[in-house]
């Protein structure tokens, strides 16, 4: 089993600081967050520029170059609904440290992003949903198969499709959590890559509760075989849990200072 892959989520236009920095092409706040996430163990950085309908292409290229030039060609997840911006970003993307990830496709309106990945030799995050929340794992698996078939038909390697089981909020969909974990196990048993944005599960919970929920769910998902997660690497408790899970699953050798690595 390969090491758990962490995609840092903090360069996201939902954050007012980042939104402003993107709008003004202000490098400092973006570089600061990028460095903090990489120092804490992120492998990939997610670059979310929002819908970016107006200047998406130019903005994505600016962001890709900014991050890769400053951080030794760090691999990136290009996160926007604007397809042209994704293609523009890939044009200037340096692959020496890993392929770009397109974030994201689904089995519905965004199916075309799988084609985009195939045409650009990229990885694609494929959400196992079509419209709204999948009813059950049968439905999740049906979408997964549809996307897998579509992607492979276009020549995409199955290891370049990272399936997202769709994390559901616990407050309101508590009864769906076990199925969510079971689906990760199914993907793992099929030898497919999986990825999840796990912090969605604790949405709406009090601030002091969220870190505990996030880290416990992450540990459980890793045990089920989750390959990657989009998360906040600057949440030390969460990262400590990830590192400990890796030790317990014997994917990394224990040393007394393992939490410092």
């Amino acid at each position: 089993m390969d090491k758990f892959i962490i995609i840092g989520e903090r360069i996201h236009c939902i954050s007012p600081v980042i939104k402003e920095a993107l709008a003004n092409r202000d490098e400092a706040p973006i570089l600061e967050r990028a460095k903090a996430q990489l120092d804490s163990g992120a492998t990939y950085l997610d670059l979310n520029i929002g819908p970016a309908e107006r200047d998406g292409e130019e903005l994505m290229q600016w962001g890709v170059k900014l991050l890769q030039e400053n951080f030794d060609n760090v691999p990136l997840a290009l996160d926007t609904a604007n397809q042209k911006a994704i293609v523009a970003g890939i044009e200037v993307y340096n692959r020496s440290k890993g392929k770009p990830i397109i974030n994201s496709a689904d089995a519905g309106d965004r199916l075309d992003n799988i084609r985009l990945a195939a045409e650009n030799d990229a990885i694609v995050i494929a959400l196992c949903s079509k419209q709204g929340v999948p009813r059950d794992n049968e439905e999740r698996m049906q979408y997964c198969q549809e996307m897998l078939e579509y992607g492979m038909g276009l020549g995409l390697d199955e290891s370049d499709m990272w399936f997202d089981p769709l994390t559901l909020v616990i407050k309101g969909m508590q009864e769906k959590q076990v199925e969510f974990l079971e689906f990760i196990r199914q993907l793992s048993d099929m030898g497919l890559m999986s990825v999840a944005g796990l912090s969605n599960a604790s949405n709406g919970m009090p601030k002091e509760v969220r870190p505990t929920v996030d880290s416990v769910l992450t540990a459980m998902a890793i045990e089920c075989g989750l390959s990657a997660a989009i998360l906040n690497p600057n949440d030390k408790h969460l990262m400590d849990v990830v590192k400990t899970a890796e030790v317990i699953l014997n994917r990394t050798l224990y040393a007394d200072s393992y939490l410092e690595l």
Partner: peptide, 14 residues
């Protein structure tokens, strides 16, 4: 001691 071997290298690197 495999764990100590790693630990010592970590300390030296630090």
């Amino acid at each position: 001691d495999i764990n100590l071997a790693k630990q010592l290298n970590v300390l030296i690197a630090q």
